[in-house]
């Protein structure tokens, strides 16, 4: 925290001596933020971004977690899907965005799919890893007491893999922030993407920084919240 204040003060100083137009003083950025924070375009941009982000990450979780668990459970599904997951995990997905535009048009749908594509692979891989390290006698225990495949899935596999799943979701969220901004810059200029575009092309640097700080703060808070959840379940991760 104190290091953050130190760097903030340095920023303020560099801004005040007007070294470069690119870096206005931090205080000016915050006063701009106060100014534009309540305005209609800003709220609208925030809503558009949050909308695409939440649907994109939610579908990444809803598809990614069960897929990962199934891959961890079934050798066949694993061998079918793992090469693709690894491929997409390391692929420069930004290069795929034009293809998505062709396939899904220039609207919200393509942005959401971009967000999902950025987030989902690490969620799949982590859920898979979580299931693969599951204590085998827990699986035998649930079978011996007559668990149906569905009950084993929801009562054993999911919970046993939860620490890894949450780790994957946290990294997935961080990647989804990239996805949603790239989508809003490349596919259609909406949301925060449109604000970036507007401010940067008009050299409104304090506006630009203000939006950037909001974005950084939001993704940081989300990541920290997920890290907190992860720590909550760690007590049993270490003792499996």
């Amino acid at each position: 925290m104190s290091s953050l204040i130190l760097w903030g003060l340095l920023w303020e100083f560099v801004g005040q001596i007007e070294l470069t137009f690119f870096l206005p003083p931090l205080s000016a950025i915050f006063s701009t933020l106060m100014e534009i924070g309540g305005t209609k375009p800003f709220i609208k941009a925030l809503q558009e971004t949050a909308h695409a982000f939440s649907i994109g990450t939610l579908s990444a979780i809803l598809i990614g977690v069960p897929t990962g668990i199934l891959m961890g459970k079934s050798r066949l599904i694993d061998e079918l899907l793992l090469p693709w997951v690894n491929l997409f995990l390391s692929a420069p997905l930004t290069a795929l965005v034009p293809v998505l535009m062709v396939l899904f048009g220039f609207g919200l749908k393509a942005i959401i799919i971009t967000t999902t594509l950025f987030a989902i692979w690490i969620i799949v891989l982590n859920s898979r890893a979580g299931v693969m390290q599951i204590n085998q006698s827990l699986v035998e225990m649930s079978r011996s007491f007559g668990a149906s495949p569905l009950a084993a899935f929801t009562k054993i596999y999911f919970w046993a893999a939860l620490p890894e799943i949450l780790g994957g979701v946290r990294i997935g969220f961080i990647r989804a922030v990239k996805g949603v901004i790239i989508g809003q810059l490349l596919i259609s200029i909406v949301g925060f993407g449109s604000l970036f575009e507007l401010y940067a092309s008009n050299f409104l640097m304090s506006h630009f920084w203000a939006v950037l700080i909001v974005l950084f703060a939001l993704s940081f808070v989300i990541a920290e919240f997920l890290a907190y959840l992860e720590r909550r379940v760690e007590y049993y991760a270490a003792r499996r």
Binding site: N135, S137, L138, E140, M141, R143, S144, F145, G146, I156, W159, L162, V233, Y236, R239, R240
Partner: peptide
């Protein structure tokens, strides 16, 4: 597996959560 048998495990096999 069936309801007529119950298993006690060497490593307990308890759900830690």
């Amino acid at each position: 597996p069936g309801a007529d048998r119950a298993f006690v495990f060497q490593d307990f096999a308890l759900m830690p959560w």
